[in-house]
Structure formats: C-alpha cells, structure tokens
Write a protein that binds this DNA or RNA. Structure first.
Lengths: 216, 216
DNA sequence: GACATACTTTGTTTACCATCAAAGTGTGCC
DNA sequence: GGCACACTTTGATGGTAAACAAAGTATGTC
C-alpha cells in the first residue's frame, strides 16, 4: 500500500485493498494503524476517504527501504478518458493534469501559505497578491466573495490537489484570455497554443505533454 | 541491535543480546536472519563473531527509519583502559584508536583497493605506492614478504578495522622515526609530539584527542 | 586432554496477530 | 424516505512466529 502511494497520489481504501490483495476490512485496519503511526493521512471527500503518504520523511523511508529490500514497486493508477484527464472543469475551477500542474506551480512560487489544519486552507502571500494582480485579477474583489478563498481540492483523476475556492477566478481569466476553451458536450477543457505559451511566459508553468490546439 | 551497530562498530552476538535484552539464542536467530537478508555481516575472529552493518544503504535505512519512528538510539560501547585504547600494538602492527584512524586515513587517500571477498584483503594502488615510497618504505621489499600484503583487522577495543599484514612495516617506520615509542610493560604505544606533527603534515592524519608526549 | 568460553541449533511453549465474514455507520442520489 | 455505495467495527479462527532452556559445536587456554 505504501509503495503504491509513493507516487504522491491519494487512493481510497478499497483501491488499496485491491492493490494489497486483502479484504476491505483488513485494508481498513492496516490503514488506520498506519494513520495512528502518522505514516499516512486521510482526506475525506463525500463518501470517499483518500489516503496519501504523510510527508517527505515517509517517502524517504520507503525509498531507502526499497534500496535495501529491492522492493518490487507496485504500480496502480486509476484510469479515466485521457481528454478529461488532461484538463477539465471541477465545479467552477480548473482540474485534471493542467489544474494540478497550475496548483503545484503557484505553490512553488509561494503564492499561498498553507493554513494547516485538516482542510488544507490556503491564504494569500504578498508574492501571491503580486502575481495575481500582474495577471489582471482584482485580488480584493476575490477576497470579498462570500466563500473560502482557496484550498487544496483533491483531483478525482490525478489524485493530487488542484486549486479550489474563490480563486476559481483563475479559470474565468483563462477563458477570457482564451488560454483555454470549453467543450460544449463535456467538462473537458482545451488548452490553446496561446494559453500554453502565456502560462509558460507569465507563470513559468510548463504543461509538459498536454497537447494544445486552436480549435474552439 | 541494528541501531546499536549504527556507529559502524562491530559487536559480538552476546553483546547484542544484552543490548536487545533477549537471550543469546534468540539474538543468534535474529542475527542470522539479518545476515540472510544482507543487513549485517559477520567477521569471525577466533571464538568471537563480530557483527556489523552490511553497508551505507542499511545505515541510510536506519537513519530514515529513526526520523519517522523517532527511535531512541541505543548507546553501547565496550570499555577498555584508556591508554591501551588510544594506541597499542596488535602482533606487529598498530592498533587502538590511532591504528583505526591511520587505517581510515590511508583508505581515504585511496592507497588500497579492497579485494572484496570475505577476508577484506587490500591491494596497493598506484597512489598508495607513491605515498609509501615518499614515507621511505621500500614497497617492493614489503610485497616480497611471504605473508598477506594488507587486510582489515578488526580492532578489539574500537571494533573497527585497523591495518594488518605485511604493511606492519608502517609500525617499524613509526618506531624508527620516533613517531611512537613502546611502553616496556604493556602493549600500549605513546604518540610523540613529533609523531603527531609529522603524521598530520605528511599524511594529513588528524589524531584528534589522542594525547602526545615526548616521554620514553 | 580437560575445561572454559562463545556461540548456534533444536525442541517446546505461549501468545499474539492477521485475516475475513458479517454487521454497523455514514454519505450521496433518486 | 429508501436504496446504493464506501468504508469501518466486531468477533471468531487459525496459523505462525518469538521466546527460552537445554543440548550441541567450535575455539582457545591451562
């Protein structure tokens, strides 16, 4: 189970039960014990409970353990249609691989300070305010909204956090600037060539293998 | 047991039994299992069997394990009279803390290539030949002796290797140059001030807290 | 050669832990 | 409200592993 989580994606207890080839009840017991020893954390989202490694120390431990034990890595990643997986909307914000990359990049730029606690609330740093204002977002207006400013929202397909909350303003911006456009029949988003270019130039965000097109 | 060995000293199974607070037979079983999994190695020396960690990977594993588990380190170092511990003869070569430091320094200078295998045989490198000739040792004459050239000899008090074999010539040199002198009533060696100075200057060997004196 | 020491192997007991089925709890959806 | 789903808790069972004493083996010493 732990090796399976080593890719830094969260997984449900049922998935981990399948991976470890034990019954759901056994998996549950093990995961709770791991949680008691602070090796994993849970993030409750509706009726799903997503388990992930507690931190870099645990990942480090697993790495050195695999060096000594020559552990055979378990690979298990849930699959979804690739178009949806690349980029899509989640309520009113950006999700999928692009959403996760954006989230990671903004955190890397230290735009947010994580408010700790169980719910992963983010608050804006001075650096963050600067970045968003430069992009043309009225930060004060976003803050004034009657909803949580920003938080880590566990991505359904990627099993890592993307950005949720009032910072959904980012999606509006991206749509307005034609960095992305929405497909009419699904939640999938297309990255435009211009969007790819500008996100790299303005944010240093490398979208990697996600394909871009000018189709609308 | 493994944490106890983390200081890179070898220990006997009986000592490790005391540390782990189990019976000698239990300790023996555990140590054999650890050996089967290549976590520890044994070095047989007479009726003693010295166990030590297999390598840096294992040490690394223990380190990261202690980070996560907050493991309480076990400290256990066998004691011997401090004069003998600092420096003494072992048959015809130099042992004790000084002997171990010398061994480590020469290995650090890459004077030897370890010939692997179970017996830790060392052979001379080009760099090593240069170092020893500069010190005034006739390397060819040493090689011509009918005995093993050099090997790691487990130090009784330090529980780490010092230099054994024909390279005992080093002790002769040290005596001739008055870097050390022998006590008449014991195997203890005195480091002279001159010896300390020259070993630092010529070999970069820092003898640390070992006291030096000009007494003979 | 006899004895002491260091260590391992064998045999036995005990305890504990993993496992799963089944029942229970909580959440989402129609 | 009722059902489906995700997951946890409970309880019973079986397997196994850890422990030590006692006997065995190897080595050094007198």
């Amino acid at each position: 189970m732990l090796y399976c989580l080593l890719d830094n994606r969260a997984r449900t207890s049922t998935e981990l039960a399948v991976v470890a080839e034990v019954s759901p009840s056994t998996a549950s017991i093990h995961l709770n014990r791991l949680r008691a020893e602070r090796l994993v954390t849970v993030q409750v989202q509706g009726k799903h409970r997503y388990y992930s490694l507690e931190g870099a120390e645990v990942a480090g431990l697993l790495e050195s353990l695999s060096v000594v034990a020559g552990g055979s890595r378990v690979n298990f990643a849930p699959r979804a249609p690739s178009r949806l997986r690349s980029a899509r909307t989640c309520y009113d914000h950006m999700a999928g691989r692009a959403g996760v990359l954006l989230h990671d990049r903004l955190k890397g730029l230290e735009c947010f300070s994580v408010h700790g606690g169980e719910d992963d609330s983010y608050s804006l740093t001075a650096k963050g305010a600067e970045v968003f204002e430069t992009l043309g977002i009225n930060v004060e207006a976003v803050k004034a909204q009657r909803r949580r400013f920003a938080y880590g929202c566990l991505d359904w397909s990627e099993r890592r956090s993307h950005l949720g909350g009032a910072m959904a303003a980012l999606l509006n911006l991206a749509l307005k600037r034609k960095w992305v456009n929405q497909e009419l029949d699904s939640r999938a988003l297309n990255i435009t060539r211009q969007g790819r270019r500008e996100m790299l130039g303005r944010l240093g965000l490398d979208l990697g293998s996600i394909s871009a097109s000018d189709a609308n």
